[in-house]
């Protein structure tokens, strides 16, 4: 499960992780639940239908499949799978019950989305082995992820007996097992780090397994500036002239103010790293890609994830 505050790049990290996990001869499934078609955009393909389809070969040689879950279709699938409804399923749709379940009662939507993922996790292939070696979900943002993942606990309490009760319990067993890990993506900024800390506390309180944090878009630290005190304007102007820049005088003030901002940022980032370290979780890092994340960039991130300890 990959979550993170809005704007931290959780979809990118989820996609890179799915690529990274695709070892030779293995299959991973990358699942999207927010209906934004973020996966299709990252992999530069047309919009994904509600269907598992192969979208890439990972750098390790394995296959990556992707699925954009549509809550309404997932509900009809479920009804079909568990209750063999046939015509009754269509009747439910006709009277608006499906609409109700997937939009007006959005808790049920979360039940369906988590249920579908757990189904993929537990599915067997024709050879009796697991259909997927790993399933990566681009989960809702940190602020909602605990409620999203724990929704089946709530459902098991509401529906005290019957098939929904059992299904909800089965999904919670998978989500709370040692085979699940919730990774939280953050930036080295105050609010995302604070939200990550809150998210970790909520996940732990709900008994959900926290994997680690992924610090995304890490900008290069320019050590020479951090280590050296900022030069006096005159010295800087002289050095810029030695470097062959003619407009040295006009550049000193902007360069010094940018230098001060850079030093401030490094200090803030150091504070945020300390905050993350206090969570006592593995921390992985991914760099800011200067030209944005295109397909080549995504593979680069996947290789960088593979190179780190998991």
């Amino acid at each position: 499960m990959v979550s993170g505050k809005g704007g931290t790049g959780k979809t990118t990290v989820a996609a890179a992780l799915a690529l990274a996990l695709a070892e030779e001869g293995r299959r991973t499934l990358l699942v999207e639940v927010e209906g934004r078609q973020g996966i299709a955009q990252l992999f530069e393909t047309e919009a994904l239908p509600y269907e598992e389809r192969r979208i890439a070969i990972g750098p390790g040689g394995g296959e990556v499949f992707a699925l954009a879950i549509d809550a309404e279709r997932a509900l009809l699938d479920y009804l079909q799978m568990f209750y063999k409804l046939g015509g009754a399923g269509r009747a439910l749709r006709r009277i608006g019950a499906i609409d109700f379940a997937t939009t007006v009662a959005p808790g049920l939507r979360d039940v369906l989305l988590t249920g579908k993922v757990c189904e993929a996790v537990r599915r067997r292939g024709p050879d009796g082995g697991w259909a997927y070696d790993a399933v990566v979900m681009d989960a809702p943002p940190t602020g909602r992820v605990t409620r999203f993942l724990a929704v089946n606990d709530e459902v098991a309490g509401l529906a005290r007996v019957g098939p929904i009760h059992h299904q909800a319990q089965a999904v919670m067993r998978v989500l709370k097992s040692a085979e699940t890990a919730v990774h939280l993506v953050t930036l080295l900024e105050e609010m995302p780090v604070q939200e990550t800390a809150d998210g970790v506390a909520e996940l732990r309180a709900a008994d959900l397994p926290v994997g680690g944090t992924v610090v995304n878009m890490v900008r290069p630290a320019l050590d020479s500036t951090a280590a050296t005190p900022l030069p006096a304007p005159n010295d800087l102007a002289a050095a810029l002239t030695r470097a062959g820049l003619r407009d040295a005088e006009a550049l000193t003030a902007p360069l010094l103010s940018q230098g001060r901002e850079h030093v401030t940022r490094l200090a803030l980032e150091a504070t945020q790293r300390d905050e993350l370290a206090r969570l006592d979780l593995p921390v992985r890092e991914l760099p800011l890609l200067p030209d944005g994340v295109d397909l080549a960039g995504l593979y680069r991130l996947a290789r960088l994830l593979r190179a780190q300890d998991w």
Partner: peptide, 20 residues
């Protein structure tokens, strides 16, 4: 290279990143 040269180089690199 003097300290000022090294500091100026650092500031120029910060500037280059900003411009990118």
């Amino acid at each position: 290279a003097s300290d000022a040269d090294r500091a100026a180089a650092g500031l120029l690199r910060v500037h280059a990143e900003r411009m990118r």
